[in-house]
Design a binder for these strands. Structure first.
Lengths: 161, 161
DNA sequence: GCACTAAAAGCAAATTATTTGCTTTTATGT
DNA sequence: ACATAAAAGCAAATAATTTGCTTTTAGTGC
């Protein structure tokens, strides 16, 4: 029902009716529409899968980054990010950042077990995640070749010894 | 007057009164509060200075990045970014990104005239600007040491030959 | 199981914001 | 000066938000 509406057409009274509650319940629990939308978006951005294991850090990261860029660039992806960032309460954004970091940590842990040498997680956040997100938010979505270049470049950065 | 209020206390009728116009004028021109705030924020984010010339690409970029990170991490900086990104119309974000790109282009043009070798602008956007912005938006503000590391790393990336 | 309590939800009135149709002003070209 | 079109004012209608108070719900100790 609500999914078919434009962002500007979604209102608290509407959501309340949909949920079978009175609007004041929603206002008291969330304060305003943006906080509610942010909460919903954070839940929807929570990863529901472990990154696929393709055999090496490099290819795991490449596969993950490609999928991440694609999902986040999509219409729904952008709206969810927007919703999270628009909220007054910054904790949603922080959570999302952690979801992402944890996914990369999973990839890193597997690489560790294999005895690979690989860049540390913060390097990947700066070198891969941040540019993807920046371009989605501020410019056009990054294309596949760009994502590939970001991943390749960050793989060249070796960890502190 | 308005500057002393919290974001959630700023309303269209208030701004209208402040401006000495009727609210409907504002609603007709901007549609809603967020578009208006985004417009204001874009104007305030427009750079009013040329990056200082310190003698080389590396030190110019370092000085610029430090100031950029500081300004954008500040309370008002964060609010302006938030306002720009919260707008339905994505053109504000695109403009802000271009403001930044143009600043880096100025630094690059000076380096070109000096005959320096330096990373291309998109590399700097990905390697310096994006991580700074990502951390401001999604986590804690980046500290000075982090910014310095980002700049140093991106300087090592030489342009395509 | 029953009474007690605190938190959450309902309800409805009051307030505030938003939209809209219509009128008036303002700016511009002739 | 007049005609025109765009922008602004005004005010009524609609919709959203806030709030005080009542009712329900869920949990706790007896």
């Amino acid at each position: 029902m609500l999914a078919t509406l434009e962002r500007t057409e979604v209102t608290v009274p509407l959501i309340a009716a949909e949920a079978g509650v009175t609007p004041s319940t929603i206002y008291r629990r969330w304060g305003d529409l943006q906080e509610l939308l942010a909460d919903v978006a954070v839940e929807r951005l929570r990863p529901d899968m472990v990154p696929v294991d393709t055999g090496s850090f490099g290819s795991d990261l490449m596969a993950w980054a490609e999928q991440y860029a694609e999902e986040m660039s999509s219409g729904p992806g952008r709206e969810m990010i927007r919703d999270v960032l628009a909220a007054q309460d910054g904790s949603g954004a922080y959570q999302c950042c952690n979801f992402t970091r944890q996914q990369i940590e999973v990839i890193a842990e597997r690489a560790e077990e294999r005895g690979e040498i690989f860049p540390d997680v913060e390097t990947v956040m700066d070198g891969v995640v941040a540019p993807i997100m920046y371009r989605i938010l501020f410019g056009g979505a990054p294309d596949a070749a760009h994502v590939e270049r970001l991943v390749t470049a960050s793989l060249a950065a070796k960890p502190a010894l």
